[in-house]
Design a protein around this nucleic acid. Structure first.
Lengths: 113, 113
DNA sequence: CTGGATCCTAAAAGATACTG
DNA sequence: CAGTATCTTTTAGGATCCAG
């Protein structure tokens, strides 16, 4: 064997770093099915999130080049968020997690009885 | 469209809940390549983790039926951890994250210059 | 050897009010 | 509309000591 394990750990964690955050997956899911959502539209689609937190998570995803922020200098201001091309590469992972999660919830319920 | 989005969010998050935790991926990666590791062996393979945290994350993974804990009533005590069959179903996701993460780190470095 | 029990800190998230 | 600025709460994680 080798010492590659510690490096490998980082590789997976680097993915996890990007999508973990209480609402990031939710945000990404919305932007996957609906490109170009405005700030307020995201707020409405994500009940429970606050402005401060939404802003923060959006900024982080933007930093990581997963989503893009487009500002239209109008009045009132309009800002749209969309997944980047790079962000799209996360799609298969998110879909697998979605699929696994569906089965997991199903299974959890079954295990409760 | 429909209102299924809010349910869908939970599905993905339910996967994320299970694998997020600073060291869970690391633990799972070790248990994937080496079935049946003892507590101390895990400690040695995961530099930086403390006993308390390792114990906690192992307990959570056990609760979720991702890993199994086997106690051998010997002196000194021996406890072995292994992935469950159900835990194995996470493997494709972890591998995709590993792959994505590798590319991501590569890309991040490129973007820095 | 495998943890449990305590205490502590840092970071994430939430509540709320305000603004160009 | 799309945030920022403060403040408070919650939670994860870490340090340390003790024990069957």
């Amino acid at each position: 064997m080798d010492r590659s394990t510690s490096a490998d750990e980082c590789l997976v964690s680097s993915t996890l770093d990007i999508i973990s955050g209480k609402w990031k997956m939710v945000i990404l899911f919305h932007l996957m099915s609906e490109p170009n959502l405005r700030f307020t539209e995201l707020m409405r689609r994500i009940p429970g999130i606050t402005q401060r937190v939404l802003t923060k998570q959006l900024r982080e995803l933007e930093q990581d080049d997963i989503i893009a922020r487009t500002i239209y200098p109008e009045i009132p201001p309009r800002v749209e968020y969309a997944m980047t091309e790079y962000g799209q590469t996360l799609r298969p992972i998110l879909e697998m997690m979605h699929h696994w999660g569906a089965n997991h919830l199903h299974r959890s319920r079954a295990r409760m009885e």
